[in-house]
Nucleic acid binder design. Structure first.
Lengths: 351, 351
DNA sequence: ACGGCACCTGGTATCGTTATCACATGTCAC
DNA sequence: GTGACATGTGATAACGATACCAGGTGCCGT
């Protein structure tokens, strides 16, 4: 940004087109944007545009309009595949309006917290709006900055961060009930749960749903000793939980375990297998999210899938609406249903 | 982009700061960018800047300079986790210079070919440079456009697309040799190979390396019937290969199989397990790339890892160099070594 | 014949920033 | 005491595009 002038981009300007077509720049602008222009002039200008390969500069337009034609997406960490589906939905929605997408992680390289990039977006008015994926309390200052800058914001996040912006999320409570019903139907009565971080709203909600469904069935239990929370959603925590699990005598184990997300579930299963247990023969296992990986491991993973594509699209659409019409009421939330994908990792309880 | 004027962003401008500090805008600019300014004026201006929360508009700067402060990254498809490591490396490098990253896929939603977003970047001069991840011949028109626009380009790609831009890639030939040595050392003599698409340069190179290493060892073979190419790098093709594999009588199988990439390898293993085979007891399996997933499946996957982080960083650095100094010679390539990660999926040949 | 209107076109100012030049100072050397 | 030179500041003109207003036509109705 510091360097002298830009490269000698041979890109032509509207003035060049105007000169060559013997009209004023304004007329060229009108030809492009559809204002009054006689057929002859229009044809002449369009010919010159094609000859020179002219296309309007996004930068100059951005300065003139208030709009940048570009939104920012901030993800927790750029590693981790689970949000790719979201990005797909966002991109799809943006593509319809020819808008761009700037991506940054809130914690680059999983280093110390550093939201400077996103903060710079706001300060420098680089984007027309922001989508936060998994917004946590640490990002509060960013939110304040966005608010002050009057910048539309949406969240893809289980808990509504604040009375500002649109929040898009899944029915995590229902998800808990759904997986519980599935396991109960298969005959499981003692069910375990290994959640993500205890302060993560989605794990809590899912557990609540699970608990409610379990308590509605006579003889079904969700014992305190079978419920735990891990420090993160990383696979390593799933592995740790598995090591814990195999240490217990078989009679003291739940016959089905629900993990906080698919990554954890897959790691959990792997570790059980390493210890010689078989899934689902010895224990049924299920996760949440519906990442692709669950489809290509063995056994394939039963999960309650988030409609990632839809979540992304909804967050994006909501953001665009708010950009279009800043008067839209804020603090709304949109909820999406989650969907059971029953696969190999769950089976009827062995007698 | 069409709408009237932008939102009433209450962001303050350099003029507002200047007025409040009783100086000319130019002076404010100098205070920010470090030109001559007396200590008193500097202090006064900086105070006002803080009071008003002023930050220069990236858009206006972009128009003034030639630079957008932003590069574009075009990936083949936004699904697929394997390039997240690359993105991490790119982001890291960009972060150092406070540059932005615009992301787009060449085939959004894996629909019909549609590079319109990237083409628009070029036409509208939205980015200072482009990184192509897995550039294929279908993107040729884009490349031509970039060339005409005098836009720096780098590729993260096994085959050098053209005599233009910097290409960053791995030593795939060596990778083939590396995995071959590993398997040969473990005592395997009949080795199989299941590549990606036949026209993918990396699969071919890896096979060549494999072949060379195998042929150097007496008694080791890479038979034609044990070598195949699949239509894509998708896990489904790995699964298909496994079905093929288990159909053969055990005596006609290689004792070790190398897959085109990790996704395929993991799917291959899963399918073998489903058929009742055990890895590595019945067959050793290895992949390429080193995706995270290979670490949490069972058995963990032996692979030859690409230094994704480094590849991304190198491509980005090269791009920035070229943006800085457009006279840099083009058509260069930078090669990176790949690294063996020996894990559970490969073991000494069972006698 | 003249006001009114629809149609087409151009001039000018503007978005927010900085390069360039011009003009003040003050300081030092000779 | 006068030129040379560093230091500080401001006025002006760009960067590329478009909003707005002000013309110019021609055609119609009265």
């Amino acid at each position: 940004m510091k360097a002298r002038r830009g490269r000698p981009s041979n890109a032509s300007t509207i003035t060049a087109v105007a000169a060559k077509a013997n009209v004023a720049p304004m007329t060229v602008s009108r030809v492009i944007n559809g204002g009054y222009a006689s057929p002859q002039v229009r044809a002449r200008v369009q010919k010159v545009i094609k000859e020179l390969g002219y296309a309007p500069s996004a930068t100059a337009r951005s300065l003139r309009y208030g709009r940048k034609g570009c939104i920012g997406v901030a993800v927790e960490s750029i590693r981790g595949a689970w949000f790719m589906g979201l990005l797909g939905g966002i991109e799809e929605e943006l593509g319809k309006k020819h808008l761009g997408l700037m991506l940054a992680s809130l914690k680059p390289q999983d280093r110390a917290y550093d939201a400077s990039t996103v903060a710079a977006w706001i300060d420098a008015r680089r984007v027309d709006g922001l989508i936060f994926v998994r917004f946590t309390k640490h990002e509060r200052p960013l939110l304040r900055a966005a608010k002050e800058a009057n910048l539309p914001v949406t969240f893809i996040c289980p808990d509504q961060p604040e009375d500002f912006g649109l929040t898009v999320r899944c029915r995590n409570f229902d998800a808990g009930k759904i997986i519980a019903s599935h396991l109960l139907e298969l005959g499981h009565r003692r069910i375990g749960f290994v959640g993500g971080p205890p302060d993560s709203e989605d794990s809590q909600e899912r557990l609540r749903g699970l608990r409610e469904a379990v308590s509605a069935v006579k003889g079904a239990t969700l014992r305190a000793e079978d419920v735990s929370f891990e420090s993160s959603y990383m696979p390593s925590t799933g592995r740790a939980a598995a090591l814990e699990f195999v240490k217990r005598p078989a009679s003291k184990r739940p016959s089905a375990v629900v993990l906080g997300n698919d990554s954890m579930a897959i790691a959990f299963i792997s570790e059980l297998q390493r210890a010689g247990l078989q899934v689902p023969r010895d224990v049924s296992v299920a996760g949440f999210d519906g990442i692709d990986e669950g489809e290509r491991c063995f056994p394939t993973l039963t999960t309650v899938a988030q409609p990632m594509q839809n979540l992304g699209a909804a967050a994006c659409k909501g953001l665009l609406d708010r950009i279009e019409d800043p008067s839209l009421v804020d603090g709304m939330t949109a909820e999406f249903p989650m969907q059971l994908i029953a696969r190999e990792s769950t089976a009827p309880r062995s007698s």
